[in-house]
């Protein structure tokens, strides 16, 4: 089992212009764990995971202070190769985002852009990733069909297949089930449990039950601050912080 995929956050502050979205956040995500991030809208949880793959760079006038280490390496140094960082830290979004290409080409996309043309390698990877994302049996007979013809749940699993095709160590998921029905959601959750052996998974979710079901550890953020970060079982049964307790018992949020 590969032991890479560790994220360490040290005294992280993040600003959109003058607005401080994250305040002095420190936490560690251990390899091969599923960590859920919960908290009310605008608390900074999506921002936080976008810092792990430097996706926040795409927004102008943002600023990062503090340290983020992935496998012990600072990802905010001048000579960080953002492109290879993003291959190492994959991401699945709230809205499924299949490219307007065939199912096959969607999964192969990340390989093709780094110049892999060998059909045998591509075929093997596509099959492996679709199997792993539990989509293979549904699509194996029409890999050439447009990815847009799949259902919402299938599209989201395709996005997961596409993300794991580039062989990442960490997968970030930004509310991957919020647009899906309960059955499709359950399939994604099963998939996450199966993927845990290979990858570290950080999932942002609005759904506290989902966090409780899938994760090993849960982080609760509010107003840009990390209020509590604990083992999921303890987090939901015996929260150490009063605000956490109020939040998970539905007193606000």
């Amino acid at each position: 089992m590969n032991t890479n995929g560790r994220i360490e956050v040290k005294n992280l502050n993040f600003y959109y212009g003058n607005y401080q979205a994250l305040k002095n956040v420190s936490m560690t995500v251990e390899p091969h764990q599923i960590v859920a991030m919960i908290g009310p809208s605008g608390c900074g949880k999506s921002t936080l995971i976008r810092i792990f793959n430097r996706m926040c760079d795409l927004i102008p006038s943002t600023r990062v202070e503090g340290k983020v280490l992935i496998d012990g390496k600072d990802i905010y140094t001048k000579d960080t190769d953002v492109v290879s960082l993003r291959r190492k830290v994959g991401m699945v979004f709230q809205k499924s985002t299949p490219f307007p290409k065939s199912i096959y080409d969607n999964v192969a996309y990340g390989l093709k852009i780094i110049g892999i043309k060998d059909h045998r390698v591509l075929n093997e990877t596509v099959e492996k990733c679709l199997r792993r994302s539990a989509l293979w049996d549904e699509v194996k007979d029409h890999l050439g069909k447009s990815a847009l013809s799949l259902s919402g749940g299938q599209q989201q699993r395709l996005c997961i297949a596409r993300a794991i095709a580039v062989d990442p160590e960490i997968i970030l998921m930004d509310e991957p089930c919020s647009a899906l029905d309960p059955i499709a959601t359950a399939r994604i959750e099963e998939l996450m449990a199966a993927l845990k052996d290979e990858y570290t998974i950080v999932i942002v979710t609005h759904n506290m039950q989902q966090a409780a079901r899938v994760s090993d550890k849960t982080a609760f953020l509010m107003h840009g601050q990390l209020i509590e970060y604990n083992k999921t079982t303890d987090f939901f049964t015996n929260p150490s912080n009063k605000i956490t307790e109020d939040y998970i018992t539905g007193r606000f949020g």
Partner: peptide, 25 residues
């Protein structure tokens, strides 16, 4: 939609790759 560009970047696409094969398509 911005999220499609993000998806390409998330797979390690460069700006040119995200543009030429995602945005234009």
């Amino acid at each position: 939609p911005f999220v499609y560009k993000e998806s390409a970047y998330a797979l390690g696409a460069t700006r040119w790759e995200a543009l030429s094969n995602i945005v234009l398509s």
